[in-house]
Write a protein that binds this DNA or RNA. Structure first.
Lengths: 151, 151
DNA sequence: TATTGTTATACTCTATAACTATA
DNA sequence: TATAGTTATAGAGTATAACAATA
């Protein structure tokens, strides 16, 4: 947890200073610009795994739209859905931060880990990630030992 | 990062629901109650590694004090320092959450990892943690590739 | 002058609930 | 009735800068 916390802090600083992006904003942008085939995704698909509430995504996507880095338009397929699309400016911004972002990752995390360590870590954590994705996130909620102090 | 994020989210939920503690508050309490010999530490030592700003610690310690879980008193040795001490109520609260906390850790993280995995992970990450602690946290700041958009 | 800690302030982010609209 | 998304709102947490006091 300490490693992840320090890494995240370092990453957030670089993203903020180099491109004025929050961590979530960067991830949304990266998902659109690097993973999404046509540079667009439905809000829900975009949110997947990045945010814990719908409104949180609306908020962050709104900021990206205000900054001109994405556009939002109703989907032709399903009129309930909104397609979020990365703009040219968004791709530019993403390209601008990416090298520095990778630098931070490498210097803080990948270098001390070494190539072998990186692979070992990935093998170790992949099943954990799958387990976490699969299990109901509320399991922790139901299984408390002590009664809440409210009653 | 995803594993750490999900784990932290699960942990935070349990801490909040079982004992009305934030993650940081729990860590402060744990450091005082489990690590500190006499249950007390100077503010600065208490903060070490848990918080990224002094005021952040003052805020969290203030909440703990309000809740009667710690006390704050000037240090006899150095009158600039404040000794934070866990109270009986604080130890009780800590004892109340701890079992559930460990449950969450085990179910989300330790179990899917397995005993061997836990050890392997610890060996892998220990040097990374040391590297991160040692290297100036601002390295990311100075090493930016793109000029900040301000000027 | 450097260190310890607090305060004032402003801001970012998150989450819940109520709501609209489409399927 | 369920799904997609927004909005209103409220609260928690964080950080910066200015500050007071001690070393």
């Amino acid at each position: 947890m300490e490693v992840a916390g320090l890494l995240r802090h370092g990453v957030e600083q670089q993203l903020r200073e180099a491109a004025d992006l929050s961590y979530v904003q960067f991830q949304l942008l990266a998902r659109l610009g690097l993973d999404a085939p046509a540079g667009s995704l439905r809000m829900t698909d975009l949110a997947d795994g990045l945010v814990h509430s719908r409104s949180g995504l609306t908020y962050q996507a709104g900021l990206l739209e205000q900054a001109g880095l994405v556009t939002r338009a109703p989907s032709p397929d399903d009129e309930r859905s909104i397609m979020v699309t990365i703009t040219a400016a968004g791709r530019r911004r993403l390209g601008d931060v990416l090298p520095g972002h990778v630098d931070v990752l490498r210097e803080m995390f990948l270098a001390p880990l070494g190539d072998e360590g990186v692979h070992a870590l990935a093998s170790l954590l992949a099943p954990v990630r799958d387990h976490m994705r699969a299990s109901p996130p509320r399991s922790a909620t139901r299984r408390r030992r002590t009664a809440p102090p409210e009653g």
